[in-house]
Structures are given as C-alpha cells and as structure tokens.
Amino acid sequence: MAKTVLIADDSASIRQVVGMTLKNAGYEVIEAEDGKDALSKLDGQKVHLVISDVNMPNMDGISFVKELKAQPANKFTPVIMLTTEAGEDKKQAGQMAGAKAWMVKPFQPAQMLDAVSKLVLP
C-alpha cells in the first residue's frame, strides 16, 4: 500500500515539484494551499509524512504543525519544513513545533526523496 504524504505550500509550483517527485517515487500525495487548508483536508486522518512551508497565508507552517501534532492520529507523523528561511531562530521554532527536518528551498528532487525515505514511518 502506497504511503501518503501531505504537502502544504501556498506556491503552486512548489506543490507541483514536490508532488511530481513523490508521485514518481510511488507515494500518494495530498496538496494543500496553507495550514488551514491542510487541516481541513486531513480531517483528523493519519498521513505517513507532512511537508510544510513556513510562510503561508491564513495559517503559517509553525502553527499548522502545532495543531497537527495535537491530533491523536498524527501525533507521531514526521514533518519536514520546506522554506526559504534559513535563520537559526526560525529553525528552532520549527523544531519546537515538532518538525523532524528543515529543508531550504530550492531543493533537489533526489534530496527530497532521500529525506522522505529516511523519515517516513513503515
């Protein structure tokens, strides 16, 4: 059974790049435009991994990850923050929210797949 990955990013091109990369590798992908949209699409259901942007309208990535981790089904779901920000304070905020990795854009598809395969739960 294919693993499900949720990608939350307000940039359609980033969603497409991540989606293409993961779908070609056999993952099922759920796309969301921001944190609020992601929570709505999850609707409390478990996913195997979440990739989230930090700066998004309606609900930013840090707030989204905090709410995601509060859900029983996704308490242990690994999260990769995918952002243009590289500041240590931002990284620390992501780590405190419960993220497992911090990836700075632009990313290489192979690099993304490597990180996903390391973090996705069996």
């Binding site: 930090v54 700066n55 993220a99 990795a101 990836m103 632009p106």
Partner: peptide, 25 residues
C-alpha cells in the same frame, strides 16, 4: 524570509543564487 532580502537590505554585494540544504533535528 529569504537570505537575499537581508543582503539587499544591508546593501551587501550580491552572491550566487542560494542553494538549499537540509537539517535533521
């Protein structure tokens, strides 16, 4: 939110295009 914004704000010399990296917590 991007490194080049800080560079431009300070008026520093522009560098090459930024490349991504990953940090595992």
């Amino acid at each position: 939110t991007t490194p080049e914004q800080y560079i431009n704000h300070r008026g520093d010399e522009a560098t090459d295009s930024p490349s991504g990296g990953i940090t595992f917590f």
